[in-house]
Design a protein around this nucleic acid. Structure first.
Lengths: 336, 336
DNA sequence: CGCTTTCGGGTAAACGATTACGTAAACGCA
DNA sequence: TGCGTTTACGTAATCGTTTACCCGAAAGCG
């Protein structure tokens, strides 16, 4: 590994001079700078982030914390897509990304310890169990943190408009003439609870009464349990005319249940998903759903976190809502 | 940040003694060690990976290089799932994961430079454009490297059995009585070419002649172009009885084309995918496909790379093949 | 011609760990 | 008692940078 020392020797200057020349200080002669920069090129100098970080206390590294309870983690397109744009934005700002787990070396510790050990400048918390004391410890630490789809007091957060999105979907179904609307919601998290709230709020505003048997629970992002929930709904004496699913992916299970029952979408029953994953547009008929703006979620999360890292004083821990949009597919029939 | 110095002061010993006590050297009194370990606990000592790595030249960090040409990258379940198990295994071995891009700081450089800058101990190359000179530069460097689904001379690699898998699928279709078999293959990469080879090899062994119009090309992992390729096949005078798709995900497009043509799977036409993504098992009818063992791919990639990092002399750069298995769904009809 | 500024660059300490080597005390043994 | 060996810990250099401070020479100025 070629270091500043090598360059210094070759140019007959001190290491300090090399450092200054390469980092663009002013108190250096233009001729010397040129010489040094050229030598650095020729020797293939790369720099050493470890040494730099050790001295400056700034690693240009941000940690990602996501513990996938449901083990869907990476598989969930929501996460994959968000992470992708998060990474892109971070790289654009000169930051790299490292995963933070609750073990370092061979033994398990806390997320905070891991973050401190690696010296990350900040952490994005996504898809994690926010009730976990270890997560709380990290959130309450000195390290800048931003959470996705969950809010903590006095901490930055980026949120998808789950409540508004669900409200808009209900209104859409209502406008299409549906009055008997069922909802298979996911198991309780901040996200699914927000959607529930949106659902009930819209129903109330529209003066829709939802019989309790129209509300089913399934595992979020899990088609099998959704399949069973759907079967239960279809077996009801007074069948709903429209079913809301917890998420697009779960709908695969629901779809199977509907087909098995000999029903057609949307002629016999209408369905609505949530997420707007790529697959939703590929299905036939195309799924009507709410498109989350994962690209913006990831981008903003990275950008805001970096803002807070670089300008802690002037950047308040805001809660930013990213809006999605109705993706009108072909799975909701107009009733008259 | 509490450092060894703080512990040293509190215990009235030197920093060297603290280091020895904490890293488990022998030349230390048992009583002193206890004292130091306790003090470390009490002060909440975490260690500093940067300082340690600077001195030992070992970061316990491995880089992931994946440049997603098709922009499917993270979205592809193959990648997501492999990355997930790779990360799990790496963490089990005490390693963290960082993404390696071709830019560091605010300016673009090479992958190698990035890897050197961050001081990663090794790199896993996955889903990348292996023809890229920048990738080659990294592969030919001193840094331990392992590639997924691509082989370089004298470099470790982990491979999915794409050729065997495809051969097995063809044999399966043959045994089910199919003789008119079409294949929509993905655009050329090491992966798709291996599958092609497997396809032709099996056909030859079975003395099946494949008319050229039965071979179509589409964008890998892209349902839209697969939709069009499927339409072309269905429009042929002598329609194939079974269509092989480049991958499960693309089949979504193919499925739509089939439905539009008013055909049923598998009654009117049989279909076979490749990958064994979660969705394949959720579709109705269940897709017959080849299940890639992504869990093993990721695990072995991490394990082998770490082996080569820690025991470079005794670990040859092997090419390891991970076997998948036939996932018998309901999309291939038995012909008689 | 003296004096202060500015310019260009060097010195050295520091970041937080690791480790080869030194050394004083205790111990073993004839 | 004398001498070698072990035990337990300290000293100091080092990894590759950054940065506050220092200093000589050239330049500017009246």
């Amino acid at each position: 590994m070629v270091s500043m020392k090598d360059i210094a020797i070759r140019c007959g200057v001190s290491v300090a001079t090399v450092s200054k020349a390469l980092s663009g200080q002013q108190d250096i002669g233009e001729a010397t700078r040129q010489r040094i920069v050229r030598a650095a090129e020729e020797l293939g100098y790369t720099g050493n982030s470890l040494a730099r970080a050790l001295k400056t206390n700034h690693t240009y590294n941000i940690g990602i914390l996501f513990s996938d309870l449901s083990n869907s983690g990476f598989m969930h397109e929501y996460f994959a897509s968000t992470l992708n744009s998060l990474r892109t934005e971070a790289e654009r700002c000169g930051y790299d990304i490292t995963f933070i787990s609750n073990n370092v070396g061979h033994q398990s510790t806390s997320y905070l310890r891991h973050a401190l050990y690696r010296g990350v400048d900040g952490v994005v918390i996504i898809c994690a169990d926010f009730r976990d004391p270890l997560v709380q410890e990290l959130v309450n630490s000195e390290i800048p943190v931003i959470t996705l789809d969950h809010t903590f007091n006095n901490r930055a957060a980026v949120l998808s408009d789950n409540m508004d999105g669900m409200e808009a979907l209900v209104r859409y179904a209502y406008e299409m003439g549906h009055r008997r609307i069922a909802y298979i919601h996911g198991n309780p998290t901040a996200v699914t609870e927000n959607r529930m709230t949106g659902f009930y709020r819209a129903c109330e505003a529209l003066e829709l009464t939802v019989p309790p048997e129209y509300i089913e629970e399934c595992e979020y992002h899990e088609p099998i349990s959704c399949y069973h929930a759907t079967k239960r709904l279809l077996a009801l004496a007074e069948r709903p005319t429209c079913i809301f699913f917890s998420d697009d992916y779960s709908y695969i299970g629901g779809s199977n249940a509907i087909l098995e029952a000999g029903l057609r979408v949307p002629e016999d029953i209408s369905v609505i998903g949530y997420d707007g994953i790529h697959m939703a547009k590929m299905l036939s008929p195309k799924l009507t759903t709410w498109q989350q703006n994962t690209t913006e979620l990831g981008r903003i999360a990275a950008a805001r976190l970096i803002e807070r890292i670089e300008h802690p004083r002037t950047t308040p821990p805001e809660h930013i809502v990213v809006h999605g949009g109705l993706l009108e597919g072909e799975t909701v029939r107009r009733l008259d």
